[in-house]
């Protein structure tokens, strides 16, 4: 009985560790400023040598409206401190268009990220 409990516990812990390692994108890793007219469809991170790399897809869900937006990636270290950030990068997205971007941290101490999306007021 004790062995079964131990096995179950190790399976649970293992699953959580696997989930953490697979680079699942959390909701707290995205932040919107203004109305969500352009959405962050998906984002994931992986290690490129010593540096963290982030791949993200933005989508303009509207059929006709052309949207302007800017986004920025904040690079966060293991203590949860923002140690660097990219410049705000502008895009114009036509209706139903998806834009894929890749950004890489330039510092080896970066372990996490947050994508900030800002759309101007109309």
């Amino acid at each position: 009985m004790l062995n079964t409990k131990k096995t179950l516990l190790s399976i649970t812990v293992g699953s959580f560790m696997l989930l953490g390692m697979s680079g699942c994108a959390g909701k707290n890793q995205e932040h919107y400023i203004g109305k969500e007219r352009v959405i962050l469809k998906e984002h994931k991170s992986f290690q490129e040598g010593k540096f963290l790399k982030v791949a993200a897809t933005f989508e303009n869900e509207d059929n006709t409206e052309v949207e302007g937006m800017v986004y920025q990636v904040e690079w966060i270290d293991s203590r949860g401190i923002v140690v660097d950030q990219t410049a705000w990068k502008p895009f114009t997205i036509i209706g139903k268009q998806q834009i894929r971007v890749v950004d890489m941290a330039n510092r080896p101490d970066v372990t996490d990220y947050r994508i900030i999306i800002s759309t101007p007021n109309k």
Partner: peptide
């Protein structure tokens, strides 16, 4: 914001400088 996207004119500006440096460094 020093990192803000600047669109005052179409000349080569601070945003272009920053994005160029970031892309080529990566």
């Amino acid at each position: 914001d020093a990192k803000a996207a600047e669109t005052v004119t179409a000349d080569f500006g601070s945003s272009d400088l920053q994005s160029t440096a970031e892309t080529l460094t990566q």
